[in-house]
């Protein structure tokens, strides 16, 4: 964001400087510790769910990932619906945003928020407002990576 400095008026640049000074005061270490603990706990919970599926259903370590992710998104729906996930997000920052439950929260909260505009235009149209870019860049990056790799394997004899 700093690279479009030239376009700004001196007053704006001064504001940016002031802004930066205040932003730097955010307690980095504390944020990271919180992200670490909450993110770690969410992943530990995910591990527990994975073992639950391995023990009680016919899933292997290889295949248990999908039901685990679905369960995490389901839990995230409950927390989002009761307004708890936002509190968690304020406390832990990336700790609750980076796990897949954060992705679920982004989709679900958008869906709930726009319900008043109707199911087709409101829910359907806004659901992926926040998560859409994740899907777009994920799919496109995966396409490029897989394409390069396939070409290397087929014609490069990798």
């Amino acid at each position: 964001m700093a690279n479009n400095n030239e376009k700004k008026t001196p007053a704006q640049q001064q504001y940016d400087k002031l802004n930066q000074k205040h932003e730097l005061k955010r307690p980095l270490l504390k944020n990271c510790l919180r992200a670490f603990f909450v993110g770690g706990l969410i992943c530990t919970l995910g591990q527990a769910i994975t073992y639950f599926f391995i023990y009680f259903f016919n899933f292997t370590e290889q295949t248990a990932g999908n039901p685990t992710v679905a369960t995490m998104v389901f839990l995230s729906m409950l927390l989002t619906g009761f307004g708890l996930y936002d509190h968690l997000g304020q406390y832990s920052g990336a700790g609750s945003a980076v796990p897949v439950s954060g992705f679920g929260n982004a989709v679900i909260s958008a869906a709930i928020e726009h319900r008043t505009e109707g199911f087709v235009l409101g829910v359907g149209g806004n659901m992926f407002k926040l998560a859409g870019s994740v899907i777009l860049f994920g799919v496109f990056a995966a396409f490029v990576v897989a394409l390069i790799k396939t070409i290397l394997i087929q014609w490069g004899g990798l």
């Binding site: 679905a70 009761f82 679920g104 989709v107 869906a111």
Partner: peptide, 18 residues
């Protein structure tokens, strides 16, 4: 899994929660 779960539960969530 992740995306379909997000879509299904998002829709259910929108229908259930205010």
């Amino acid at each position: 899994a992740g995306i379909s779960a997000a879509i299904v539960f998002g829709f259910i969530g929108a229908a259930v929660f205010k």
